[in-house]
């Protein structure tokens, strides 16, 4: 079993987009991951919930700059904790502009090398 304390950096806390990225990341790993609020704002119980459940994660009510405890069991535990820590440590990248909805840009569409003039 691996455990880690992580501070939640995104302004929204563990909520909205950071929360859905967190849950998605938890779902991508083949191990059991739980998460508990540490500096509980509303929740006094500090009981860990299933990190792959959006309902569970939302129930924690973890705000910006509060900490969570991540608990992972299974083969990919360390990888999973690394990935989750990364999500929680990444401030939200700016306003996503006016583009309609999901404009996750595909980065630099790499130009074929030989085509330079």
């Amino acid at each position: 079993m691996a455990e880690r304390l992580v501070r939640v950096v995104p302004e929204a806390g563990l909520h909205a987009r950071p929360a859905s990225e967190f849950v998605q990341t938890a779902n991508e790993h083949d191990c059991e991951i739980r998460v508990a609020a540490v500096d509980s704002g509303g929740n006094e119980e500090d009981e860990p919930v299933d990190a792959s459940s959006m309902l569970g994660v939302t129930s924690l009510g973890v705000g910006h700059d509060e900490r969570v405890k991540l608990i992972a069991e299974g083969e990919e535990s360390e990888d999973a904790l690394d990935a989750l820590e990364e999500v929680l440590s990444t401030p939200e990248n700016g306003d996503s502009g006016e583009c309609d909805g999901d404009s996750e840009s595909e980065g630099n569409t790499s130009k074929a090398n030989g085509e330079e003039e």
Binding site: H15, G42, N43, L55, T58
Partner: peptide, 16 residues
């Protein structure tokens, strides 16, 4: 802003 998160988390907690 706390009200907002607090209602959301209390409700989610009960719905679990």
């Amino acid at each position: 802003s706390d009200d907002h998160l607090e209602i959301l988390s209390s409700l989610s907690r009960s719905l679990m």
